[in-house]
Amino acid sequence: MRDSTGRVRTVLLLGGRSEIGLAVVERLVRDGAREVVLAARGGAADPPGTLAALGATLHSVDFDAALPDTHTATVAEAVSLVGDLDVVVDAFGVLGEQSEYEADPAAAARAAAVNYTGHVSAGLAVAARLREQGHGALVVLSSVAGVRVRRFNFVYGSAKAGLDGFAQGLADSLHGSGARVLVVRPGYVPTRMSAHVAPAPFPATPGQVAEAVRSGLRSGATTVWVPRVLGPLFTGMRLLPRPLWRRLNR
């Protein structure tokens, strides 16, 4: 259960090797979370030592984003390990090279399946559980890439656009159920996953994303932008004329 100061007991991380996801989990553990389930393909083999050192008990479950038929069972397994899920962090995803996707359409579709439809099945499985338990929060790692899709990463961006819309709809469907969804829209975050991408303005660290998630969970926000300036910035970018937008994005 979440307490009145925002402390939670249990956290499930979907995408158990995600750097941003792990930063969010670490933040919640520092605030008092005690049971952590890391869900990753083949289980989270090598979880970071910091979480255990901070006093959390770590559990690992097998989770394959590309196998939607297994997602309900993954959520059930997490529940059997730790009980009610107070916070679920939905952080899995892949970020390939746009040029390679354009050369290999099947690979592009597989990436889109992980980045979008995998979240549909996982998100709905989590939502069903949160609805049943009458409380809990689902944190969805979206991206500014989905706010207005850009020429240079439109395979990734379009999947994030789908995910973002899905998460907002899911949030509305959960209204009044005791459960809620927090949509997180970071900009460029330098991590292993984004190492091949050219840096963009207004970068954020995984720690900043984690801090934003924490305060969003406490304030009852529905959406957080990291850094915050990206909110008004992208609202403006959505209004730019197409020819200008195309040129801005190489």
Binding site: M1, R2, D3, S4, G134, H135, G176, S177, G178, A179
Partner: peptide, 12 residues
């Protein structure tokens, strides 16, 4: 959705 008098941590 219910809370106590402190109006924190609502659950259904």
């Amino acid at each position: 959705l219910l809370t106590g008098w402190g109006r924190t941590a609502p659950t259904a």
